[in-house]
Design a protein around this nucleic acid. Structure first.
Lengths: 217, 217
DNA sequence: GTCTATATTACGATAGAC
DNA sequence: GTCTATCGTAATATAGAC
């Protein structure tokens, strides 16, 4: 890995720029957060142990706690940026754009995130499924505000006859449900399809057809 | 929520008739399983504690372990019947019936289960989300067999021009995803819709429209 | 910064009185 | 059948040497 302080891919939840850090601090924090994402997303918060995270990160347990004050803090650091990353594609929906293109693009981008970032999806699913104890406020403030905003946009589009009349909120829920399902229920989907079928290939075609039919006036 | 020993209808996972038991055994086993469903579905297996289950059941912890040999055994008892209950509506899909009616009825019954049995839905979601460590085999055997069977039925219907051409497996996945979302992500849905809107009313209308449009040739 | 050793609690499960 | 008391373990977190 080359020096590259400004780097940070799509999956970067590390907030490495929040505070000044030495190089080794950045590297180790990143190792820990990646390991924690692996373990928390697969086991949930309570199911995960610091031993597992330390092993996955290739560090000793006390060393992990040298970089983060507690298990809770590691989890919080992961969740902190997640909602923003998760909602970026919805935020990008352009009121000036062509309605069906905008919605189809959103859906496709969301499905792509399920394929590329299944651990993040499952981390989020674990949190919400258990009542969102550590992210709950963000749902009824930030999330609700954004969704209400975009729902109003969709409502306008419908009023202008550019979309079939559908409930905007439930339209958005349906995109979440259908795309995240392929990340969150991955084992079930693969168990049903068998080992030789890629779930996302079929999902892409199916969801294209579904939303085309749903949205065409 | 924990009392009411005489109740017990659609949600009965207790298998009370498996072995002969005295009346008090039946009552207490049922209390424990209901409490365990409450706690496991909200916290996941590892997040749940016997203390919580015992408190919810109104029994002491050792008394809980008098009726079940271990925490694991309580969880297993809950999961044992769950897959069957969960798939009963799909099993009921009739190859002789009118295709769109059959699929619409399946979807509606599944949405109704999300409304009436959200805890069971979340218990299942927790299990699958974490890789189905305790139910995995059932997915690639029983579940796959049933879904493949019904997928063949749907394929026939399509070949006869009675349905729009859609991938049968992904059609079934879409029903699961869209209906279970309202149980599994309940807190999120309610946070977005606000306290005065019933998610399931809107969901029923929306999903009726969605699947009607999808399935009409 | 990193480690070994350890303090401390929480939890699953058992013993044994009643 | 039910309870109090308790054992043993595993998990979070800290102390302190290097």
């Amino acid at each position: 890995m080359t020096d590259d302080p400004k780097s940070g891919g799509a999956t970067d939840l590390t907030h490495e720029n929040d505070k000044p850090r030495t190089r080794i601090q950045k590297v180790n924090r990143k190792k820990i957060l990646d390991a924690a994402l692996e373990v928390f997303s697969a086991q949930g918060f309570r199911g995960a142990t610091l031993d597992q995270i330390a092993a996955e990160a290739g560090l000793s347990k006390p060393n992990v706690l040298y970089y983060f004050p507690s298990k809770e803090a590691i989890h919080a650091a992961l969740l902190a940026g997640l909602l923003d990353i998760w909602l970026a594609p919805l935020r990008a929906m352009d009121p000036q754009g062509e309605p069906r293109d905008e919605i189809m693009s959103y859906m496709r981008r969301k499905l792509e995130m399920s394929r590329e970032m299944p651990r993040e999806s499952r981390l989020f699913a674990n949190e919400v499924l258990q009542g969102a104890p550590r992210i709950g406020d963000g749902l009824s403030t930030d999330l609700k505000a954004l969704v209400d905003d975009k729902a109003a946009v969709i409502r306008d589009w419908i009023a202008q006859g550019k979309l079939a009349p559908v409930d905007p909120h439930h339209l958005i829920f349906s995109i979440w449900a259908l795309t995240q399902h392929y990340a969150d229920f991955d084992v079930q989907v693969r168990a049903v399809l068998g080992p030789d079928t890629d779930p996302f290939d079929g999902a892409g075609k199916f969801l294209d057809m579904l939303f085309t039919r749903l949205l065409t006036p």
